[in-house]
């Protein structure tokens, strides 16, 4: 090693270590990966397993203590009428919220991806990012203000002489209630509001990847605007919408704060988990309830992955 190597002999420890990594690139990858993988693997996945384990225990009705014996009886409880209602109600809400978010998000995403240029682009991006990252509780609180009986919505309805409409809506069975902040409509609105940025950003990312000459090509081949939308734009945006729906669906399934603050007294999965593990002390049933969104999301993620949604994440 005299002529081919650099003139200055380099024997520092770091260089020696660097040489080792150069000869064993996999060792370096492994060393880099190990700490985060241990963290996620042990702390997080380990916790998930701990939860799963709990769901196979049961609560002794008489003593109120957890019986540490393997049983499926806790899962059987999920199928009792009241519990099944909670699950169905939550899944339906998550599906509706996802659908509404997709419909409202699309024009914003489309405008931002296709038409916004320069400063409008930056403005759109920030306008979506800021509500996404601003405080969740603050956002929920804002809707408490809006939907309150004496709040801005009622005031506007009165000003526009539409009070009859508002009262009519509140009088509707199931989705109505004493005021918007104690109704399913209110819960739904807040969910859509809070999660919609999660839908806009991936949809926009997918749309930005559609080169405008695809649209020109479609037009050139004789597609009218509607056909272009149906055959080119929408299919290419779909992975983005699915990626966004992962968040809107999952977050709605597990939320327990929004329905607690804005909504009626009927429970959703998140609230059930929260009350069961807290005041009721029924950890096994809480765990079994928590496994439901986990299982739903597992299937959902698997399908999303097959449809290429992860590429736009």
């Amino acid at each position: 090693m005299t002529t081919a190597t650099l003139e200055r002999p380099r024997t520092s420890l770091l260089t020696a270590l660097s040489d080792t990594f150069f000869r064993q690139p996999k060792l370096l990858t492994l060393l880099l990966l190990l700490p985060p993988l241990l963290w996620i693997g042990v702390v997080y996945v380990g916790s998930l397993f701990a939860l799963l384990l709990q769901s196979f225990y049961s609560l002794d009705d008489f003593s109120g203590l957890v019986n540490h014996q393997f049983t499926l009886s806790t899962y059987a409880q999920l199928f009792e009428e009241a519990n099944l209602q909670i699950i169905l109600r939550t899944v339906l809400m998550a599906a509706l919220v996802t659908l509404a978010s997709a419909i409202i998000a699309f024009p914003i995403a489309y405008y931002a991806a296709r038409y916004a240029r320069g400063w409008t682009k930056a403005l759109f991006y920030l306008a979506v990012m800021m509500p996404l990252w601003s405080s969740y509780l603050v956002k929920v609180y804002a809707w408490k203000l809006i939907l309150a009986k004496e709040g801005i919505l009622t005031w506007m309805a009165e000003g526009l002489h539409l009070k009859w409409l508002l009262d009519g809506i509140l009088a509707l069975p199931v989705i109505g209630g004493p005021s918007l902040s104690f109704s399913y409509i209110g819960t739904f609105l807040v969910f859509v509001y809070v999660w919609i940025p999660y839908m806009i950003l991936p949809t926009q990312a997918a749309l930005e990847r559609v080169p405008s000459n695809y649209l020109e090509a479609a037009a050139d081949l004789g597609a009218d605007p509607r056909q272009t939308f149906n055959t080119v734009i929408f299919p290419l945006a779909l992975p983005g919408i699915i990626a966004g729906s992962i968040f809107t669906f999952s977050l709605t399934l597990g939320d327990y704060i929004i329905p607690q603050i804005v909504g009626n007294s009927r429970l959703m999965i998140g609230q059930a988990v929260y009350t069961l593990q807290g005041t009721a002390g029924n950890i096994p049933l809480a765990a079994a309830f928590a496994v439901v969104p986990m299982a739903i999301m597992g299937v959902y993620l698997w399908m999303a992955k097959r449809m290429g949604a992860f590429d736009v994440l």
Partner: peptide
Amino acid sequence: LFILPIALPGIITGISLRS
């Protein structure tokens, strides 16, 4: 795996860690 903690509802992360 790294995306999981935000892809799953927060309540699952919460109750899992708690147990």
